[in-house]
Structure formats: C-alpha cells, structure tokens
C-alpha cells in the first residue's frame, strides 16, 4: 500500500512548487552574497557560493526524484478505492511533475560548475 499522499491533488503542483521556491531562494541568495561578500573573480566558478548552490540543487533534485519515484510506484500499484482511476491519474501526473521539477532543478544547478557567481 502506498502512502495516500501520492494520490492527493497537491501532487499536481507540488514538484514544480518545490522547484520554484528553490529557484527563488537560489536567485535571492546569489544576489545577496554577491552584494555582501563577493568571492574574488579569479576563483572562477569554484567558489563557496557556487559550491553551496550546487549542493543545494543536487539535494533538491534528489528529493524530487525520490517523490517522483514514490508517485510512479503508486501509479503502477493501483488502489482499490472508489476513485481509483482518478487517484492513478493524479499519481501519474505527480510522477511527471516531480521528475520535470528534478530535471529543471539539476539543469539550472549544473550552471554553477561553469560560471563565476558574481561576474
């Protein structure tokens, strides 16, 4: 039996909401730290700001992938409730939305490997 959460309609927005919140935090933190404590330009991309952003992005990606997997397994397992068809529809969409959130989070996060933060 899967946790009921994977069939909850919140799944239709959850994964990408997590991404957008992380994106706001990341963009805000970048602006703040570049203004307050900018690392030397010569360090290139390998600065503490980029490292922190990358670790954060990987962590959020991991969470989103975990949730995507939960939803996917929930969608495959089926359930016996009256609204089974609707529940499976929601779980399937939840898997897709969490997965897409993970793809966007990681793609943006990997940029930290390439560019200096405050230039």
């Amino acid at each position: 039996m899967w946790p009921r959460e994977v069939y909850h309609p919140i799944q239709l927005a959850f994964g990408l909401t997590v991404w957008i919140v992380w994106f706001i935090v990341k963009y805000g933190a970048l602006a703040f730290f570049c203004e307050q404590v900018p690392p030397p330009i010569e360090q290139g991309a390998f600065t503490w700001i980029n490292t922190t952003l990358l670790i954060g992005s990987v962590a959020v990606t991991g969470l989103l992938l975990f949730w995507a997997n939960n939803c996917w397994r929930g969608a495959r397992a089926g359930n016996n409730q009256a609204d089974a068809e609707t529940n499976l529809f929601i779980a399937w969409l939840g898997a897709g939305i969490n997965l897409l959130g993970a793809v966007v989070t990681l793609s943006q996060g990997l940029m930290s490997l390439l560019l200096p933060p405050c230039l």
């Binding site: 994106f23 990341k26 963009y27 970048l30 602006a31 570049c34 980029n50 966007v104 793609s107 943006q108 940029m111 930290s112 390439l114 560019l115 200096p116 933060p117 405050c118 230039l119």
Partner: peptide, 10 residues
C-alpha cells in the same frame, strides 16, 4: 551576473 543569466537561459 552571468550565472544568474544562465539560470534563466536554462
């Protein structure tokens, strides 16, 4: 900053 631009570009 270029990194911020890269986020939005991606």
């Amino acid at each position: 900053p270029q990194l911020a631009q890269a986020f939005f570009s991606m």
